[in-house]
């Protein structure tokens, strides 16, 4: 803590923290306020005396209604949810098994393989989508959810593998050795001992993977074309910006509703998530 007088705590701790919070949360506030602001308030000139940029006297659900009635937003939500969950599950299964293998099985080149997997994570998506789109076309997967479910793991698996590798390394290997002496095979020791102990790590990896696929933009933009197949980030941007006309209210409503599932996922797992990041296995 900061020592000294009360003014010190204000100057060096509370005021900077407050400024930082405002800076951080203002975009979200703006998003919320725009969502509920009626159009006639949204598009008035800022010099007008009735202009109240930071609040509204006539909150409305028009934009949300517009979103669900005039666009395929519900479908986009469903698409995004389905794609994110499927790709997260695939990536978690592969990542947990690969992370376990790389951290625990002493096979030749394990270290090099781990680094290689990490390097693939570093290849930017803006480059990778070019060959991937070729593959998607060859397998006739274009404009289906599978185009994304199968391509998101290209960056999710390295990510999960690397995260799980670190987590498994932090679990004392004696736990597993003891289980194997106790009568468990390698597979059972992993299933009954290592994986339950690694649950916080698996949850963190899962939340990160889910968020990454939920927010993914470029693959979704390139691989999907019909409005019925789109995900929230792409759908909102492509259907609510028409030429140079921005449907600000609906855009913000879409952004708000799109970020709610992620926020729920975070807060739901936050206890495990935090302990997952700080490591929870102590003798």
């Amino acid at each position: 803590m900061i020592e000294g007088g009360v003014w010190r705590r204000w100057v060096f701790f509370r005021i900077p923290l407050a400024l930082f919070l405002i800076f951080l949360l203002f975009p979200f506030y703006w998003m919320v306020i725009t969502t509920f602001r009626p159009d006639n308030e949204l598009y008035i000139a800022w010099q007008r005396p009735t202009y109240t940029p930071f609040w509204t006297w006539h909150p409305t659900l028009d934009h949300i209604r517009f979103l669900f009635r005039e666009t395929a937003f519900a479908t986009w939500l469903w698409n995004t949810m389905f794609i994110s969950i499927c790709s997260t599950i695939i990536s978690l299964i592969c990542g947990v098994l690969a992370g376990y293998a790389l951290s625990r099985l002493n096979f030749p080149f394990a270290g090099g393989l781990g680094t290689t997997i990490f390097i693939t994570y570093l290849v930017p998506q803006t480059l990778l989508f070019i060959p991937l789109s070729e593959i998607i076309r060859n397998y006739n997967l274009g404009d289906t959810p599978w185009a994304l479910i199968l391509t998101y793991p290209t960056f999710l698996i390295p990510f999960c593998t690397w995260l799980m590798m670190g987590y498994f390394k932090a679990i004392p290997k004696e736990l597993e050795e003891c289980a194997r002496i106790d009568g468990a095979s390698r597979w059972k020791a992993m299933l009954y001992i290592v994986i339950p102990v690694a649950v916080p790590g698996i949850l963190s990896a899962g939340i990160f993977a889910f968020t990454l696929s939920w927010n993914e933009f470029i693959y979704a933009l390139v691989f999907l074309s019909s409005p019925q197949q789109k995900t929230v980030p792409v759908g909102v941007v492509s259907e609510l910006i028409r030429g140079d006309v921005f449907f600000w209210g609906a855009l913000m409503a879409g952004a708000l509703l799109g970020s709610i599932p992620v926020a729920i996922a975070y807060s739901f797992f936050v206890e495990h998530y935090v302990s997952g990041l700080t490591g929870s296995v102590k003798g």
Binding site: E174, E177, C178, I181, D182, A184, V281, G283
Partner: peptide, 16 residues
């Protein structure tokens, strides 16, 4: 598992 032994470890290795 097939050696019919039991081992006690320095860090106890209890399943947490």
């Amino acid at each position: 598992m097939d050696r019919d032994i039991a081992m006690v470890f320095q860090n106890y290795a209890l399943y947490p």
